[in-house]
Structures are given as C-alpha cells and as structure tokens.
C-alpha cells in the first residue's frame, strides 16, 4: 500500500455518511495520514456524519480533527486552517471535496435564477479557491512540498443539459487546478483534479429527488439514472466512493510525485480522455 505516515491531510465536505469526502478521509487515514475533516456545521439534517467519520479515523489509530465552517467564507477558512495546523502540526495533503448540494440550479439555463447560479459557484469555485490559497500558503511556509487534490467531475470535462451552473463550476475547478499547478510546481507542490463519474453517494439520492419528472417516482428515477450510467460505463457498474478514494490516495502518494495539473477521470471507462 502507498504510505502516508507522518503526513497531515485535510478533507472538506466529509460529513456525508456515504460520501466521497468520507471515503477519501478514511482511505488517507488507512494509509497512515492524520486527517482533519470539515463540513458546514455539526448535525445538519441527515448529515450527522462528521463525528462518525472522526471516530472511524481514530479507530484506525490515526489522529483526527473535525473543523466546522463555510469554505466560501474567507474568515472561516483562515480559522479552520489555523485549527488544523495548531492541532495536527502541519498540512501536506489538501482535498477540496466540498460542493454545493444539488438544488434548484438543476434546471434549463433559460429558467436558471441568479441566486441559484451564484450559490453553486460560491461553494464549488470560491470555496475551492479559498481553501487552495490557504493550503498553498501553509505548504509554501513549510517548504516541503505538498499535494492539492480538487474534486471536479466528468461534467467538468463535458457539459450536460440542466447542469449549466454545476458544469461551469466543475470546469472552473479544472482551470484553477492547472493555473495553480504551474504556480506551485517549483515548490514541489502538485495540484490535480479528479473527475468522478456517477458515484453511489447521498448526492445521487438528492439528484433523483431533484430531477425526477412529475410522472416518475423518485426511486424509479434513481434506478433509471443508475441503469443509464451502468450502460454507458465499460465496467458496467457505477462508481463506488472507494474508487475515488483509491485515486486520491495515489495522487497523495510519492507514486504520483511527477503528476501535476492533470484531471483524472474515474468513471469506469465512459468518457476516456
């Protein structure tokens, strides 16, 4: 297994019980890293998972810390990074996973409200920017390199209908990733994006709830989303959060020390680029 002993990681948006953030945090801890995890606030409806993640990480014998806060708020980001460094001593691996929940932004562009568009950009783009900036400042100050991993999406490579705000935000994350990779390369800090395809997490449930046509029940529609994704993938299954966690652990490791600025597609062999 790739070894991350002595490293400190920070994963945002990690409270989802079946979420990608949680899987990544646990995987990095399994590899030996100390892991700080973030989400918006404790015990938000149905998202009571951060305490749970914390105990799972500590059960692996790794040090951990929960930091609550809004990644799109500059002052809160400053505070959270100070907490991580104060408690865990340093920061080596930053995983920007937090994203706006799917909501009223998943509509045709002609119907898309400004505030809904803004909300998606605020979390996905501004939040990623602020956390990248804070992480980069910390890593530069330490002077020992580092890893930044931003979670984009296959929709960050190819736009789809009803996803204008989301696609724009996920494309933006890839652009930010590339620019930052150029800036931080000389300091041995790599910056990469992962582009998951449909991955079995709470987000799919939200999506199905949000997008199901009035004549199709949520559960039936969810099944249709899955069946389409399975059909399109070469491996004939949807993504598991562990698939994404494996890719993240690789990018965080020495094995990937010369990969920077890349957007790795992890979608079971659908878009292939």
């Amino acid at each position: 297994m790739v070894e991350l002993h002595g490293k400190v990681a920070f994963v945002t948006g990690a409270a989802g019980r079946k979420g990608i953030g949680r899987a990544i945090a646990v995987r990095l801890a399994e590899r030996g890293a100390s892991v700080a995890v973030n989400d918006l606030r404790p015990s938000e409806s149905r998202r009571q998972g951060l305490e749970d993640v914390l105990s799972e990480i500590e059960g692996l014998g790794a040090r951990s810390l929960a930091v609550y806060g809004d990644i799109a708020d500059g002052a809160q980001v400053e505070r959270m990074f100070a907490q991580v460094v104060n408690h865990l001593g340093q920061l080596d691996i930053m995983v920007n996973n937090a994203a706006a929940p799917s909501g009223p932004d998943r509509v045709p562009l002609v119907d898309l409200q400004e505030e809904h568009f803004d909300r998606v950009q605020r979390v996905n783009v501004r939040g990623t920017y602020l956390c990248c900036r804070a992480a980069a400042r910390q890593m530069l100050a330490q002077g020992e390199g580092g890893r930044i991993i931003n979670i984009s999406s296959v929709i960050g490579k190819h736009g789809v209908a009803l996803y204008a705000a989301y696609a724009a935000s996920k494309f933006a994350i890839r652009g930010l990733t590339q620019s930052l990779a150029h800036e931080l390369g000389p300091d041995n800090i790599t910056v990469n994006a992962i582009c998951p395809g449909l991955t079995e997490s709470e987000r799919v449930d939200d999506l199905a709830h949000q997008l199901h046509p009035s004549n199709i029940a949520t559960g039936v529609f969810r099944k249709e989303i899955f069946e389409r994704a399975i059909r399109e993938s070469s491996l004939k299954r949807v993504g598991k959060t562990s698939d994404i966690a494996d890719a993240a652990a690789f990018l965080a490791s020495d094995y990937a020390s010369y990969i920077t600025g890349q957007s790795l597609v992890v979608d079971g062999g659908h878009i292939m680029d």
């Binding site: 990733t177 590339q178 990779a181 150029h182 390369g185 790599t190 070469s234 491996l235 993504g239 598991k240 698939d243 494996d246 890719a247 690789f250 010369y258 990969i259 920077t260 600025g261 890349q262 957007s263 790795l264 597609v265 992890v266 979608d267 079971g268 062999g269 292939m272 680029d273």
Partner: peptide, 17 residues
C-alpha cells in the same frame, strides 16, 4: 486504478495539462 480504465495519463511534470 480499475475504475479509470481507458484513461491516458499524462506524466510530464505539468507541461501539458
């Protein structure tokens, strides 16, 4: 890496992204 099948990974230290 199984779920990445079909991918072409660029490993060039960040020339082509």
């Amino acid at each position: 890496s199984d779920f990445m099948t079909g991918a072409s990974l660029t490993v060039d230290g960040g020339i082509h992204m």
